[in-house]
Design a protein around this nucleic acid. Structure first.
Lengths: 214, 214
DNA sequence: CAGCATCCGCTTTGATACTG
DNA sequence: CAGTATCAAAGCGGATGCTG
């Protein structure tokens, strides 16, 4: 990207990560950890493959991403965030909070990947951290997702849980609506949500029944 | 900007503010409040005038900026942030923190405006909030800047103070280095800082004598 | 198949000139 | 002051081809 040539912290940051696609590439590596080229390409639907290669070089030069060779059985090149790249977490978080309000109006032809849900989910909290930790399996989008509590905080990662407290299936916005407490379980079921297991474990994550749209 | 077409909060945010120059325009309106077209143009050195006009239309459509007619004596069109635009504050803050570390290596030909200092300064705190508030006058860049404390927090605004506790003159990075406590007053004086008035009032804002560069 | 590089048409940007 | 008009250059998206 062409530099803004301004002696200002925001401009200096945008000189590095202000290019189209760049912050979304950081999002992918932040959410999924080390990725192969093909995984990155799949997590960034719409990007041209030459742009992905170009940007990876740029980010490597900027010391935000580093290239590592995976151990023998895999034998592929992996890309991962450097500590400096991981420091962009607060930027992704702030953008995610601001952009979250736009998600209320879904657009019909948008692509979706299950691991993108990890961003809004990591902002939730467990309302009863003193009780035993819970694990919820979510089936939406391309891959299954596990949501689990640990000391009051809530994390999400790709995978299949052994004995989840509950299993949710349905469209992503319905699932997020339920987890954020903006949609009651009963209403969500009418809009395509299917629930197995303990409804109480789900309610432990719901912040409050009041939504506050702008 | 062409949409990313992804059902993800970060991508949705970047669909709106991911264009080149857009976040810097928000920075200007955030730091200076309502601005005339010419003021914006001056605070965004390097932007092409047609781009500024285009982006202002886009931001108005996105309900981030609103156009207001100034009262008779001024008789100009003013641009200001809507509440939704003001909500981008945390995004600017996160980018500013991340980009702040890049400021350690200043680039020779970068433009500078005094009000840009308000971002790093607003992250400082008054270490002795129980004592009487202080006011420091800074002369650097294009316009004079007032730094003042209020209940422990520190704010900066353009203007000339009546009876400041101290007056600082010198290059912007030296002044920021001193205020952030990464540069001792004595060392700063050797590098071009001129100080009048109470050095103690300046030390009240310095967080700690240890810098922590990466 | 993973990991690019090349080519090509289109859009966006930047520099400058001009106008009510 | 507050923009619009014009045009060349750069960037982007899509398709395709090449290499281990």
């Amino acid at each position: 990207m062409r530099s803004y040539r301004q002696h200002c912290a925001v401009a200096r940051a945008l000189d590095v990560v202000g290019d189209r696609w760049t912050l979304l590439m950081v999002r992918e590596l932040f959410l999924r950890g080390p990725c192969r080229y093909t995984d990155l390409h799949d997590g960034l639907p719409g990007i041209a493959t030459n742009l992905l290669a170009d940007r990876l070089r740029d980010l490597e030069l900027a010391a935000i991403v580093q290239r590592v060779d995976a151990p023998p059985p895999v034998a592929a090149t992996l890309y991962e965030l450097t500590p400096r790249g991981h420091d962009l977490g607060p930027v992704l978080h702030a953008l995610g909070v601001w952009g979250g309000e736009l998600m209320a109006r879904p657009r019909p032809h948008d692509e979706f990947r299950a691991h993108w849900l990890a961003l809004p989910i990591s902002r939730l909290t467990d309302r009863s951290p003193s009780q035993s930790p819970i694990m919820i399996q979510i089936h939406t989008g391309d891959q299954p997702l596990i949501v689990e509590t640990l000391d009051g905080s809530v994390r999400a990662r790709l995978g299949i849980a052994e004995n989840p407290n509950a299993v949710l299936r349905g469209p992503p916005d319905i699932i997020i609506g339920v987890l954020r407490g903006q949609l009651a379980l009963a209403a969500a079921k009418k809009r395509g949500l299917r629930v197995e297991g303990s409804a109480a474990s789900i309610r432990r994550l719901q912040p409050s029944p009041s939504g506050k749209p702008r």
